[in-house]
């Protein structure tokens, strides 16, 4: 019977080796080591052996079982690995096929630029102060030292409404006076963003509405030197630390002295191109020391207080940074434009 067992063992190992897949292997297991398998059937015949031989036979059966189990496990692992390999090979994909696209939302480029401006000025202690779009002539002009019919009014082509004395603000400067009235006698550092309106044809270069961000600082110890330092810091953060800036004299009725800040052309790096009209510089903002009349109109005594103000156009800044050559893209809201930001 031992010989029978050894023969069965040898046969089983042979057929194990020929099992080509896990399904065949499962059958082999059932037939060999299963509850009604060949090993079991053989052990049932143990009663036919003399009692003295039985322990040795039993040991041998257990050893054979153990070895077959081990051989089975090894073969199973081998076959599983082969099957996985086959499946992986069969299911390879072309990774260069296009991906499944997601809808992507976005902020308008003007909003993105405004936020950048808010962030830089926020770091310097300037907070956002907003005021209305539809304004009185008094706040838009007169309190800013621009009397009726003054030639300075030529600087702002104005939309008038059918209500006399009511206009669409031409700049966010009215907010300067509103802020001064609200905060007197505290020192002030605010920026004044908002939509402004000018009586201008809509062309690649001019728009009838545009954002402006003005700034106002009022205190007892503020001079042109503070203005220059603060605005230079702003320009370096907005356009890059290595960027050169220059200040030149200019005119605004609500500031005196007044200046314009130019930044080294970011397109040509100062060599000259059609964007900077071959000067190497582009105008970024107007600024100056708050005119004593404006301080007085805001409630601040110009003999005690001084301050600076500045104004810039976020769209213009965005046009320079992203090389947008037509301002009409901004309110045209063509998704093929907006989705590029």
């Amino acid at each position: 019977m031992l010989a029978q067992l050894d023969e069965l063992y040898a046969q089983s190992l042979d057929s194990l080796a020929t099992a080509v897949n896990t399904a065949v292997l499962d059958t082999w297991y059932k037939d060999t080591l299963g509850r009604k398998g060949s090993i079991y059937l053989l052990t049932r015949q143990v009663g036919q052996l003399p009692a003295a031989e039985r322990p040795a036979f039993g040991q041998r059966v257990n050893a054979v079982k153990q070895e077959l189990e081990t051989a089975y496990e090894a073969r199973l692992a081998e076959l599983k690995a082969a099957e996985l390999q086959a499946e992986i090979t069969a299911s390879a994909i072309d990774v260069t096929l296009p991906g499944r696209k997601q809808w992507r939302g976005g902020l308008h480029v003007a909003t993105q630029t405004l936020r950048e401006i808010y962030r830089i000025w926020g770091d310097m202690g300037f907070q956002v102060y907003r005021s209305r779009d539809v304004e009185t002539d008094e706040y838009n002009f007169e309190l800013l030292n621009i009397p009726p019919h003054h030639p300075a009014r030529d600087m702002w082509d104005t939309f008038h409404t059918t209500t006399p004395g009511v206009i669409l603000r031409t700049h966010t400067s009215p907010g300067q006076v509103h802020a001064m009235h609200e905060y007197y006698p505290e020192p002030i550092r605010v920026i004044l963003p908002g939509m402004c309106y000018r009586y201008e044809q809509i062309t690649a270069r001019s728009e009838l509405q545009f954002h402006q961000v003005e700034g106002l600082a009022v205190g007892k110890n503020i001079s042109m030197a503070d203005l220059k330092g603060t605005l230079t810091d702003f320009a370096r953060r907005m356009f890059g630390a290595e960027r050169q800036v220059r200040f030149r004299a200019n005119y605004f009725p609500f500031t005196e002295p007044s200046a314009e800040m130019d930044v080294e052309c970011i397109i040509c790096g100062g060599d000259g191109c059609n964007v900077c009209k071959y000067t190497g510089w582009v105008e970024i903002l107007g600024c100056g020391m708050v005119h004593p009349t404006v301080l007085r109109n805001g409630g601040y005594d110009p003999a005690v207080y001084s301050g600076f103000a500045f104004g810039m156009g976020p769209e213009r800044i965005a046009m320079l940074k992203y090389r947008i050559d037509d301002i009409r893209y901004f309110w045209g809201n063509d998704l093929r434009f907006l989705e590029q930001f």
């Binding site: 202690g125 600082a217 110890n221």
Partner: peptide, 8 residues
């Protein structure tokens, strides 16, 4: 220069 005036 850097602004040295009182921060509001």
């Amino acid at each position: 220069i850097e602004m040295g005036d009182t921060l509001p």
